[in-house]
Write a protein that binds this DNA or RNA. Structure first.
Length: 471
DNA sequence: TTTTGAGTTGTTCGA
DNA sequence: GTCGAACAACTCAAA
């Protein structure tokens, strides 16, 4: 059984298949060298380390851990161990589809059976399509079609008879997934990677988040969102399990409307995978090619201010610092910081996508690429170009008590909430009383919102008239 | 093939 | 302070 992004024992179709077949040798291969420029980012590697550690414990320390080219290592190991079957759950990044197809052929040539399963999505990408077989490019019809096809949970809990492991005790450390500089403290206090952590997180959401999900999910200081994204990315819990438990809890609590909105978000994840399958170039190329002519700016200094959370707009800075400290950012805030980078600073969405890729514990090629293209306006069902988030307005609306801001921008802790959204507009006396020295303890706003908004709108207007479709 | 209606998450302006 | 309209015209889905 080849584990990849399905680091769980429960509800794991490939593992259940292997267990039904006989004794199981569980294997993980760190396959960075196959990944090209989409090698895992630093935060993701931290998570992977701990998730593998949890899986290894659940497997009585018998998880084989290797690093290198899976295309060579797996057939080699399978033949050494006289395996008759290799199973895995499918991954859908373009480089993996290509690699795994070759692997399956290679195994079959050696007379070793190879079977893959769907272990990480509600629907096999390519399943939810229009009646004529072509892919959806708009979310709502995709969602409606998906609703008619929703799968039910086939629960399994595999208890494998394990083949003994002769690997050294430092097998996991040898992958060198952990940072050499110890910057992971904030992540350690925030997260519990692994299957048990995933189930605990789901429970927390069912008890504390789901009841107010529909509106609460927009308020970053409220913990109404599920925070399941990294667990889902690493397959520590199956989406069918999440859906099933959410619907059961919603039925008990009369929270069906809330559950419906949560399901929409789960289906967005499916929509991203569908887009990635049908349009693999979404990872680095505008889906709407008219954006190829957009006059993006390059400014290393401004990009650094954004990355470091020193823009002078507290809601943006809070988000970027939450990202840096915890490897996560609340969804509403992701939209705000992304809009700020792409529209106010007018920098290419791929700059943001790359930074998120490195910093997010839930970094996921499908979701990250589609999310950034959505904000930029170049993607599927994208925000219209004139929709430019105003970080001050958004802050007042969605963090009215400045609770979220003060958590991540502590230099504003003593400033009354009403001035936290735009400190530069606060009365001098209030700033002094709160110990805030603009340009010293907290930055001045790095740009003028009105002027940069107008600049972005003008840039869009200047684009040559051409086909705006996704092809 | 043609037509029709809808399309995640906003902001600003003026009544 | 609240509300509706304008923003710009398009693509996409489905009948």
């Amino acid at each position: 059984m080849w584990f990849r992004q399905d680091l769980r024992l429960q509800d794991n179709p490939a593992l259940a298949d292997a267990v039904a077949h006989g004794e199981v040798l569980p294997v993980f291969i760190l396959d960075d060298e196959n990944a090209g420029s989409w090698r895992r980012g630093a935060a993701s590697r931290w998570w992977l380390h701990h998730s593998l550690s949890a899986l290894d414990r659940a497997l009585d320390g018998k998880l084989w851990i290797l690093r290198g080219n899976a295309l060579e290592l797996l057939p080699q190991l399978a033949s050494e161990q006289k395996a008759s079957l290799v199973t895995w759950n499918r991954c859908y990044e373009p480089w993996r589809i290509k690699r795994d197809t070759a692997l399956k052929e290679s195994l079959k040539r050696s007379n070793i059976q190879a079977r893959s399963h769907n272990g990480s999505l509600l629907f096999e990408p390519g399943r939810v399509v229009k009646p004529d077989g072509s892919p959806y490019k708009v979310f709502t019809p995709f969602y409606k079609q998906a609703l008619t096809l929703l799968p039910s949970l086939h629960a399994t809990l595999a208890k494998p008879e394990l083949v003994g492991c002769a690997q050294p005790a430092d097998k996991l450390a040898a992958l060198r997934l952990l940072p050499t500089l110890d910057w992971a403290g904030g992540m350690e206090t925030t997260w519990t990677p692994g299957e048990a952590g995933a189930h605990a997180q789901l429970e927390r959401f069912l008890e504390q988040g789901l009841g107010q999900y529909k509106t609460g999910r927009d308020f970053p200081a409220q913990r109404s969102v599920s925070r399941l994204s990294p667990h889902l990315h690493f397959g520590e819990i199956a989406p069918q399990r999440v859906l099933s438990n959410v619907e059961r809890a919603a039925h008990t609590d009369g929270a069906e409307r809330e559950a419906e909105h949560f399901l929409r978000e789960l289906i967005w994840r499916e929509f991203s995978y569908s887009l990635l399958l049908h349009f693999p170039r979404v990872v680095d190329t505008n889906l709407r090619s008219m954006f190829d002519a957009f006059p993006w700016r390059t400014d290393g200094e401004q990009l650094r201010l954004w990355q470091q959370g020193k823009t002078g707009f507290p809601i943006v800075d809070a988000g970027m610092r939450e990202l840096w400290q915890t490897g996560y950012m609340h969804n509403r805030v992701r939209m705000i910081v992304a809009s700020f980078l792409v529209k106010n600073l007018m920098m290419h969405w791929s700059e943001g996508a790359r930074w998120f890729w490195d910093c997010l514990v839930d970094a996921d090629l499908a979701n990250n690429s589609c999310g950034w293209q959505w904000v930029a306006g170049s993607g599927a069902d994208a925000a219209p170009y004139f929709r430019i988030f105003n970080p001050v307005t958004q802050s007042e609306k969605f963090d009215p008590t400045a609770t979220y801001i003060k958590q991540y921008v502590p230099e504003l802790a003593a400033l009354p909430a009403r001035y936290c959204h735009a400190p530069a507009a606060a009365p001098t006396a209030e700033l002094t009383r709160a110990g805030v020295k603009l340009g010293d303890t907290y930055p001045m706003p790095m740009v003028d919102l009105q002027a940069t908004r107008a600049r972005a709108l003008d840039a869009f207007k200047s684009l040559p008239k051409q086909d705006q479709s996704i092809r």
